[in-house]
Design a protein around this nucleic acid. Structure first.
Lengths: 225, 225
DNA sequence: TTTAAATATTAAGTTATTATTAACTCTGCA
DNA sequence: TGCAGAGTTAATAATAACTTAATATTTAAA
């Protein structure tokens, strides 16, 4: 289940802090980049498209608040997570930071463990699930390799079976109408009998051995963990 | 288009703090509810289905951490925003709180302005407007998933039952004539006996366990919360 | 209060939809 | 060529959803 590592850009003018944060975040498995002033931050943010930016408020060239505002005004950074970091721990700047569009605001000094834990929490809630490997309790689905793993056991599905399962599983809980399934898996123009879907569903259920596909009679099917 | 106010549940055992937070959050336009211990929090959370819970860690009955864990283990609270509030401002509990599934963690004392501003930030990023989902007090109806949730419990309705409920519920208070219901749910041309509607209404009432459909004799039915 | 109409309730009957199974076609490959 | 697996179809079984009908209860008007 190897996702590409999440990219974090650290923007701070103090080399010590950059190094310190870089060390701790790398150890957590993030891919870390650094910038030492506002302009460099903007430039690198554009190039790297980080998932999260740790932004010091007090920086040369452009302040963290300015950088934050500029980033938020561009649609490409609409979903980039921004964590403000600052020695200015008074309420005024705290509020201003958050209102500029930052997602979190932490005063220095802060323990690396707390920082990492806050970053993890931010990712847990904010990051969009990337297309790719789906990971549910006990089931994972890898579209690259056409491999499904149930409780550690690898199970091989045929192409159509896999596509059908992936369609359902990429939005757990959502009911897919038979028509939707036909369009997505078979294509708009292909005409197949109605029972074809059922047969595939059955094979999937049989092979997985776990009951994760629910029939919604008269409507369609949905995937549930 | 007026969204219903966002619901915030404040859980703290100190009356002063409850009142203080209630005042400040109400002033911001939130609809505020309070609970004074862990059990009450769970009970009210189920009933009210708040968008955000401010959770004190140190509470009688059940601690904030316990409550957070219990809530997160239920799918109905998967998207509820949880903000932990505590006097325990050491790093250990900070980390533990976040790892339990809280979305933010703030140490007391904290200025009301900062709290409000953090809550606004959380809403800005975390609240996802779901298309089509109807959310009433304690009842939510999700046409995408064909799922009805009553006080946290998922209830499965059959197709016609769901469509009928959705029809009534999407305009709470409005009376639907039997004819309208037949046309909308069954279609203009279908002919079914008059009692068919009654039977479906009954099943819905039975399954939901809550009396939210009112009979208007000689006219039709309406949905009320 | 009585009465008639409307709705609620229940269980049984009917239909529609899905599950299952097996046979058949097609394709690629040894 | 013939095998093996994928994909489809078709026939039958099973099941859940829906409808009906019979009876009971409620409601509002007389």
């Amino acid at each position: 289940m190897d996702q590409p590592a999440r990219k974090v850009l650290i923007a701070d003018d103090e080399p010590d802090i950059r190094e310190f944060l870089q060390y701790n975040l790398s150890a957590e498995g993030y891919e870390v980049f650094t910038a030492k002033d506002g302009d460099e931050t903007l430039e690198k943010a554009k190039r790297i498209q980080p998932d999260l930016i740790v932004l010091d408020v007090m920086m040369p060239k452009k302040s963290g608040v300015e950088v934050c505002q500029l980033l938020r005004s561009q649609s490409a950074f609409k979903d980039t997570i921004i964590l403000m970091l600052t020695a200015l721990n008074d309420d005024g700047s705290h509020i201003k930071g958050l209102e500029t569009g930052a997602d979190d605001y932490i005063g220095k000094p802060i323990s690396p463990k707390v920082l990492v834990s806050r970053i993890n929490a931010l990712f847990r809630r904010l990051s969009k699930p990337k297309a790719g490997v789906l990971n549910m309790d006990s089931i994972s689905i890898d579209p690259e390799q056409y491999i499904v793993t149930v409780e550690g056991k690898e199970i091989s599905l045929a192409k159509k079976e896999f596509e059908l399962l992936y369609l359902l599983a990429h939005r757990p809980g959502r009911v897919f109408l038979r028509n939707e399934i036909l369009n997505q898996v078979w294509g708009n123009d292909v005409i197949v009998g109605d029972r074809t879907i059922d047969v595939h569903i059955r094979k999937i259920r049989q092979k997985l051995g776990v009951d994760c596909i629910t029939t919604v009679k008269g409507v369609g099917y949905k995937f549930e963990v």
